[in-house]
Computed example of a mutant assay.
Amino acid sequence: MLRPPVEPMLAQARETVPGPGVLPGALAFEAKFDGYRCLMFTPAHPGGPVLLQSRRGSLIERHFPDLVRAANDLPPGLVLDGELVVWHRERFSFETLQRRAAAGGRSVEQLAAAFPAHYIAFDCLQAGGEELLAEPYARRRAVLEELFTGHGLTAPWTLCPMTTDPALAQEWLTSWTDVPGVEGLVIKGLAQRYLPGARGWFKVRRRNTTEAVIGGITGSLRRPQLLILGRYDDDGRLRPVGRTVPLRPDAARQVADHLRPASPDHPWTGARFSSAWGSREALDVTPVVPDLVAEVDADTSIDRGGAWRHPLRFARLRLDTAAADVPRFGQGTTPAAG
Rank of each mutant, 00 (worst) to 15 (best):
M1D: 13
L2K: 02
L2H: 01
P4F: 00
E7A: 15
M9T: 12
A11Q: 06
Q12V: 13
R14C: 08
E15H: 04
T16A: 15
G19R: 04
L23T: 09
P24V: 08
F29S: 04
E30W: 01
Y36W: 14
R37T: 12
C38Y: 04
L39H: 10
T42K: 01
V50I: 12
L52C: 07
S54K: 03
S54L: 07
R55Q: 14
S58H: 14
I60H: 04
E61G: 08
F64E: 10
A70S: 09
N72T: 14
N72M: 12
L74D: 13
G82D: 12
V86L: 12
W87H: 13
H88Q: 13
E90P: 00
R99T: 08
R100Q: 10
A102G: 12
G104M: 06
A112S: 15
F115R: 02
P116C: 08
I120W: 05
D123I: 06
A127L: 11
L132S: 05
Y137G: 01
L144G: 03
F148Y: 04
P156K: 03
T164G: 05
D165W: 06
P166C: 08
P166W: 02
A169G: 06
L173I: 13
L173C: 10
S175G: 03
T177D: 05
G181R: 02
G181Q: 06
V182F: 00
V186E: 05
K188S: 07
L190A: 08
Q192N: 09
L195W: 03
P196M: 10
G197I: 10
A198G: 02
R205E: 09
R205P: 00
R207M: 05
A212Q: 06
V213M: 08
G216F: 08
I217D: 09
P224R: 07
L226F: 03
L226K: 08
L227W: 02
I228R: 06
G230V: 12
R231D: 11
D233R: 03
D234I: 09
P240S: 13
V241Y: 00
G242M: 06
P246F: 09
L247I: 12
L247C: 12
L247F: 06
R248W: 05
A252T: 11
R253N: 13
A262V: 13
A262T: 11
P264L: 13
H266K: 07
H266S: 11
P267E: 11
P267I: 09
P267V: 07
F273G: 09
S274F: 00
S275E: 15
W277V: 07
W277H: 15
G278R: 13
G278W: 00
R280W: 00
E281R: 09
D284W: 01
T286L: 15
P287V: 11
L292W: 01
L292F: 01
V293G: 08
A294R: 03
E295Q: 14
V296G: 01
D299I: 11
D299T: 12
S301E: 14
S301I: 13
I302C: 10
G305E: 13
G305Y: 00
A307P: 02
W308S: 15
L312H: 02
A315P: 00
L319C: 07
D320L: 02
T321L: 14
A323L: 04
P327E: 12
F329H: 11
G330I: 08
